[in-house]
Design a binder for these strands. Structure first.
Lengths: 351, 351
DNA sequence: CTGAAAGCGCTTACAG
DNA sequence: CTGAAAGCGCTTACAG
């Protein structure tokens, strides 16, 4: 009966058993000062307005009570979450964890946490990410969108939430432009295609995904093929996954007529799936069929996969640096900029 | 000059260019109702106290202004963050992304976001994670700690933050116990060791890491070795990484005397590093040396690595379900429970 | 220099 | 049934 008669404000939490976390008010009460004085002492390295003895007492009481600042309250009051969102298609794609680490490496020292939002590369999930960002969950965003375009992303800028896109090509700088970091995907794919041709391949197929960066990569590949008098041969599956890569490779192998001598996966996971399917079909790599990828995920080296190295850690770190800069006072003024990083062709045994 | 004379409360944000996000107050003003009525209509499916016409008007105005609830404010008021924290050693270890997806799969439909906190398996980072959790950043936690023990984690329970540990063995249930999900690591390693012995191996080395689950795995391996009259042969490196695995394998190969015919990596990434080092040394797998791992990360299949499968997605999902249940009213009462999931030995070509 | 007050945006108990 | 008020924990501008 008496359990529900608790009149105190502290009894309202979801759990009555746990002792309430001490607040600044509790410290103030115990130290005999105002709550504001507590806030001041706890947040400023120097507090000329508070006598040293009082300052010491406040700090001791805070320590004694095990005080920890209430993050939500801080967020509300200061209108800053000290959180970056990282919106990516799929954290299980080995390309992204490295990117996340790069982000964290810069974000953490600057005081920011990193929240991961997976979109699965689906338009409705990307839209949900925007909605979620508009709730004020993060101070800034690093994102890869497969479907949303600049006009749909403009709402973030309008609400003062800086965004850095992970892009697959240069975007023009300008007052309305969105910050981006990228490697030249078309040129990288072109260079890989040139390598395959130089190795004597003529029938080169590219496995691509329906959306995302494979489009730019396909352009580079297509251009070089045509330049060399060869016919581009695209085979498209839905996602950036080993399953998609294996499925595409199977379809290639089931075709009538001459089979390609080389397959260029628009991403490493696609190439990995292709390798698996090729081996299952009894083909040797690169003897019967050469395979190349794109990304240089950690296992690529172990598997001997020839691929395009994207500096994922550096991309993440650069994106985070850009956000940190934008969030400094006045940081929103300068126009959006596109930052290019260099790719590298990693020649291994699969080609 | 006039720029700093903005007297409105809204001019205080870090950026003056962006239009302020509309609040319930703005909607109330535009719709001619009280702010409380707006909150009610926006949050409840049915509002008997608000006339239908008013309800419709409020919803239209909210839509028109592009209203999104302010998440920090909600968190403060309701004392719920609707966020789960996932504290893990290293997101770039391919075991964890699958776990995170399992977590998200259950968390998202229940309305929870997932925040990743990497500890790098270092004690000071684990301590920082606890501190960070005590700031009220998440309603619940799924965590792998290499260093912190139950007494150091008890503070979370005291503050009403439910924790589910990813464990490597059964923990006794009980009122003070911590919820955990696990597979029987010792038994799994024992079974793998039996397999290696059954395949004729006598000199079997285990590559282990200094901290974390490899301890339990080492126990299972050691017990079976001794049972079979063989001498356990441990080689320890610092972390769960390919570099550590490769370094350990190199040290094994540089030893004088007979070299082991099989190497059991306490995790797949250690085994992968070992494979790489063995190949670099000109050894064939499994011809010259057999290699086994633990985890069954996605690439294990492709590399033909014989390993112990841990159902990482299911572990994450089960952990999230446990948290969701704990966070329901009264969910904190029942004693902590240990949930076991089954492992599976994946026999492939590396052994 | 010092301390009390306002207010961030929201939810919900409570008075009319 | 209806609406205004209190208050979550904090930061910071402002009055004495």
């Amino acid at each position: 009966m008496a359990t529900s008669t608790t009149r105190t404000k502290r009894g309202k939490g979801r759990d009555k058993a746990a002792p309430a976390r001490p607040t600044q008010k509790d410290i103030a009460l115990a130290a005999g000062v105002s709550q504001a004085a507590v806030s001041l002492v706890l947040n400023k390295a120097e507090t000329p307005s508070v006598p040293p003895a009082t300052r010491t007492r406040i700090l001791e009481v805070a320590e004694g009570l095990g005080y920890r600042p209430n993050h939500p309250a801080r967020m509300l009051r200061s209108a800053r979450t000290m959180t970056f969102a990282c919106v990516i298609p799929d954290i299980t794609n080995p390309f992204y964890p490295g990117l996340v680490r790069g982000l964290q490496a810069v974000a953490a020292p600057a005081g920011y946490d990193v929240l991961i939002f997976d979109t699965d590369g689906r338009p409705e999930r990307e839209a949900r990410a925007i909605d979620w960002l508009l709730q004020g969950r993060a101070d800034g965003v690093v994102a890869t969108f497969f479907h949303l375009r600049a006009p749909q992303l403009a709402v973030l800028a309008r609400k003062g939430i800086p965004l850095v896109r992970l892009e697959s090509q240069h975007k023009p700088d300008g007052p309305l432009a969105i910050d981006s970091v990228y490697i030249d995907n078309a040129e990288a794919a072109a260079e890989m295609t040139r390598l395959l041709i130089a190795r004597g391949h003529r029938r080169i197929a590219m496995i691509q995904a329906e959306f995302g960066p494979s489009q730019r990569r396909a352009q580079g590949y297509g251009a070089v093929m045509r330049e060399a008098g060869l016919t581009p041969d695209f085979i498209t599956d839905s996602a950036y996954s080993e399953e998609s890569g294996a499925r595409a490779m199977k379809r290639l192998l089931e075709r009538k007529g001459e089979r390609p001598t080389a397959v260029f996966g628009a991403s490493d996971v696609l190439a990995l799936g292709a390798m698996e399917a090729a081996r299952s079909a009894g083909l040797s790599i690169p003897g019967d069929i050469a395979i190349a990828g794109f990304d240089d995920i950690p296992v690529a080296k172990l598997l001997g996969l020839t691929t395009v190295r994207q500096p994922e850690f550096d991309l993440g770190a650069l994106a985070a640096e850009t956000l940190v800069r934008r969030l400094q006072p006045g940081g929103l003024e300068p126009p959006g900029k596109s930052h290019e990083l260099k790719f590298e062709i990693m020649k291994r045994s699969s080609v």
